[in-house]
């Protein structure tokens, strides 16, 4: 693409501004269109590695990784450190529990969409017990009563339905993602009933922003040590985060699929054995 150079020697200020905007826009386009160079086709192993990495937008992703890192160092990390310093550990756990409890309805919907009745039961019981006896979710009473927590989001639901992950994306603010996960993120927000209550009112907007803000600080506080450890030990932190993110997502899908607890009423003959049956083990190799 060629940019037409104005013939007039001294452009009007407005035109200068427009030209600056055009130049800025073009350079942004160049950044956004930045693609990773695939290895030569003569090196099949390198090509296989490149395909497995599946990060065609790597140059762009790395730019956003740097931007996010800058924002994190300047804002989120200091706030998370302050939060850890000021707020006692038990209170922080309580805050995290409340946030987790607020995610109950979305988790329940995803458990159902994933076809996992036992998980849906766990989520429903957790929400009811922790909201009431657990005082609005502050205390995780349900865990001790035999209803353990688990993650469920629409990204995993899509994965379970066979939707491929797509190329790696590093998004501004949101961080590591993929087309599938970012779709799941949007759907989870859309189906959250807490987001519907009083939508449009000033109070609801304030509550939603508060939840997002507290959630970000709470999550970042929990990640302070692991992230620091990775930044200290990784030669290429971006690639390490990419790898960890993908493995973590894959692990969530696998542990969901491996949860094959049966739903048989307790009074049914042999129900206890079926209900507590563990997932089938892979058959050992015949040697």
């Amino acid at each position: 693409m060629s940019v037409e150079i104005p013939t007039r020697a001294r452009p009007a200020p407005r035109r200068a501004a427009r030209r600056f905007a055009l130049a800025a826009g073009l350079s942004l386009c160049a950044v956004l269109a930045g693609c990773a160079t695939p290895p030569p086709a003569g090196d099949p192993e390198a090509v296989a590695d490149f395909r497995q990495t599946n990060d065609p937008l790597e140059p762009t992703n790395r730019v956003f990784y740097k931007v996010n890192n800058g924002l994190d160092t300047a804002i989120l990390k200091p706030v998370a450190r302050g939060y850890r310093y000021v707020v006692p550990g038990r209170v922080r756990t309580g805050v995290n529990n409340v946030l987790e409890n607020l995610g109950g309805p979305v988790r329940l919907a995803n458990d159902a969409l994933q076809g996992k009745p036992r998980r849906a039961g766990d989520t429903a019981m957790r929400f009811v017990i922790n909201t009431t006896i657990g005082l609005g979710g502050v205390f995780d009473v349900a865990k001790d009563l035999g209803y353990p927590d688990h993650d469920a989001d629409f990204g995993v639901t899509l994965a379970n339905w066979g939707v491929p992950e797509g190329p790696f994306l590093f998004l501004p603010i949101l961080g590591p993602s993929s087309p599938r996960e970012v779709t799941g993120f949007g759907v989870d927000i859309a189906i959250d009933p807490f987001g519907w209550i009083g939508r449009g009112t000033r109070a609801a907007t304030a509550a939603s922003w508060t939840k997002t803000g507290v959630g970000a600080v709470s999550t970042r506080e929990r990640l302070l040590d692991p992230v620091e450890q990775i930044e200290k030990t990784a030669l290429d932190p971006y690639a390490t985060f990419r790898s960890l993110y993908r493995q973590n997502r894959k692990g969530k899908l696998e542990s969901m699929r491996a949860d094959t607890r049966a739903t048989i009423p307790v009074w049914w003959p042999g129900a206890n054995a079926a209900n507590t049956a563990e997932t089938p083990r892979p058959t050992p190799p015949a040697k």
Binding site: T240, L244, N248
Partner: peptide, 16 residues
């Protein structure tokens, strides 16, 4: 949590 230490290390080295 579903992540392998050696796989992560391998991908770190490969990227480097």
């Amino acid at each position: 949590e579903g992540t392998s230490l050696r796989l992560t290390q391998r991908q770190d080295y490969a990227a480097f």
